[in-house]
Design a protein around this nucleic acid. Structure first.
Lengths: 259, 259
DNA sequence: TATTGTATTTCGCAT
DNA sequence: ATGCGAAGTACAATA
C-alpha cells in the first residue's frame, strides 16, 4: 500500500494549468472543484456553476461528473480533440476543439478542491457472458425450449434486410424466422421481424412463420404482431439462460457446450 | 481556493472500509487503486486486476473507470442497491446487492493509491439546445427549407404506430408525412415512415407523400425508400439549424421565435 | 408504474 | 472508412 503512483497537485489555477498541461496524455488526471461547462457541436449545452469531478485519461477522453447519476454531465471521446489547460483570471480552463466534428468543449474551474494525477495500467480484458449473441447461440442448441421438433437451419442468416438471428424448420416443415431480444420487445423489433418475413414472401414466395422472442411485450407490440400473423413468445431470459453460480472465467465454449 | 470540502483518507483497507462506510450516501467517494470487479445480473462480467478509479455518489450510483475510454468498466445505477464496504485479508471490498433485479456487484482493491471524499452540491440544470425536438419544432416553422409551399398541419401527430414528427400539406394539397432524424437514417427509420404512410392509406384511403429527413442515407436505405415511393431528403442539420455564436442561455421560445 | 423514444448515445464487428 | 445492430444501454417525458 503506497501512494507512489499518485502526485497531489497544488490547487491554484495557474500552477494547475501548468502541471496538468505537463501531464495530459501521460497520466490519469483527476480534478474536483466548482466549474461550468459548455459544449458546442452536435448539440449545444451550457452548465452553470456546480461541484463536479473531472477525469482526463491518457487517451484524451474527458469525463465530467456531478454528484448524481451515472451518466457524465459532459464528456469527450478518446482521440477526438487535444486537451488544453490554461489559466485566466484565476480560473482554470480546460478547452478542446475537435477538428473532425467542429466541436468545442470548455470547462472552467473557479475553485479546485482536490487535484492529482496517477499512472494507471490495466491490461485486463472484461470477460462477459450472457449477452444477446450468447443467448441466441444457446437457444439455437436448445430449440426445444421454443417449441418441440424444431430443426436449426441457420444462425445469423443474411438477408438484404439484415441478419436473422435463428432460421429453423418446424415439425410441419415450415420455415420459422426467430428474432431474439434480451430486452422488452419494441415496435421496431416487430417491424424488423416483419421485414424478414416479407423477404421470404417476396423473394422466395415461401410461407414462413416468424416469431419474436423477448422477456416481455407491450400490448401495442402484441397487437401489431398478432394482426400480421407474427408470433410472440415471452421468454424470461433469466429463467432459461443457465446461471453459473460462481463465476469461473468461462469461455464461450464452456458456456455453450456445458450441460 | 481551499480544500475544506475534501477529506483525504488513509489507504489501508481496514481504515478505508470503516471511513468509506461512514461516508457513503453522504459524500462523494473517490478511490483509485488496483482492483478486480465482478458483476452478476442481466449479464455476467469479470474483470481481472488493473488500475482503476472508483466513484461512489451520494445517490449510491457507482462508476468504475479504467485508464482508457469513455464508458465505465462497471457501474451501478442510482438507488439500485445499498453500497457496503468491508475489509477481508487486507482487501478493500465494495459489495452491493440489488433486490429488484437480483444482481450482485463486487469490487476488490488489493492496493489503494489514493482515497478521498468531498461534499458536492450542484443545483445547476443542464441547458441544451439542438436536440431532435428543437430540430422538428424549428423545421415546422421553416417548412420552406424542406420545399416551397408547405403548410403545417400537425406536430407530433399521434397514430397507432407512433408519433409522426411533422404532418403537413403540400402545394397540390397532398398530405406529407415527415420523419426527422438527427443521425443517419436507418432501415428501421424507413420502415417506420412506411408504416405511417400505410396508416393513412388503410385508415383514410388517402394518398399521402412520406419523407424521411436525415443528414445522410446509406445506399440500402435509399433503395428501400425509393422502391416504395418514399422520399429521402438529405438535410445537414448543422448547416440549417441556426447557430447561436455565443451561448446565451436561450429558452425554447427564444430559440423558436427568434429571427 | 409501465411505455416510448432520444442520445454529443458508445461500442464492436463486419464489409 | 462506413454501415449496422446491441447495450447490464441511461434518461426523460408521458400515460
Amino acid at each position: 500500500m503506497d501512494r507512489s503512483k499518485v502526485m497531489i497537485l497544488p490547487t491554484s489555477a495557474m500552477e494547475l494549468a501548468s502541471d496538468l498541461s505537463a501531464r495530459v496524455t501521460k497520466q490519469m488526471l483527476v480534478v474536483a472543484g466548482n466549474c461550468t461547462a459548455e459544449f458546442d457541436g452536435r448539440i449545444k449545452s451550457h452548465l452553470d456553476w456546480g461541484d463536479r469531478i473531472l477525469i482526463v485519461k491518457p487517451d484524451e477522453s474527458i469525463i465530467l461528473h456531478g454528484p448524481a447519476g451515472i451518466k457524465p454531465l459532459n464528456w469527450q471521446l478518446p482521440g477526438e480533440g487535444r486537451v488544453n489547460f490554461l489559466e485566466e483570471n484565476e480560473i482554470l480552463i480546460l478547452r478542446t476543439y475537435r477538428p473532425r466534428t467542429a466541436e468545442h468543449f470548455e470547462i472552467r474551474f473557479r475553485e479546485v478542491f482536490n487535484a492529482w494525477t496517477y499512472d494507471a495500467t490495466d491490461l485486463a480484458q472484461m470477460k462477459i457472458s450472457g449477452d444477446e449473441s450468447h443467448f441466441s447461440q444457446y437457444l439455437s442448441r436448445h430449440l426445444d425450449l421454443v417449441e418441440p421438433g424444431l430443426d436449426l437451419m441457420f444462425l445469423e442468416f443474411i438477408t438484404p434486410h439484415g441478419y436473422i438471428d435463428i432460421l429453423c424448420r418446424d415439425q410441419e416443415g415450415k420455415h420459422l424466422v426467430i428474432e431474439l431480444k434480451k430486452q422488452n420487445a419494441t415496435l421496431s423489433d416487430a417491424h424488423q421481424l416483419e421485414r424478414y418475413r416479407d423477404f421470404f414472401l417476396n423473394k422466395e414466395s415461401r410461407i414462413v412463420r416468424a416469431m419474436l422472442i423477448a422477456p416481455s411485450f407491450s400490448m401495442r407490440v402484441k397487437q401489431y404482431l398478432s394482426k400480421r400473423g407474427l408470433e410472440a413468445k415471452e421468454f424470461s431470459w433469466q429463467d432459461v439462460f443457465p446461471t453459473l453460480p460462481e463465476f469461473q472465467h468461462p469461455t464461450l465454449d464452456d458456456f455453450l457446450y456445458k450441460d
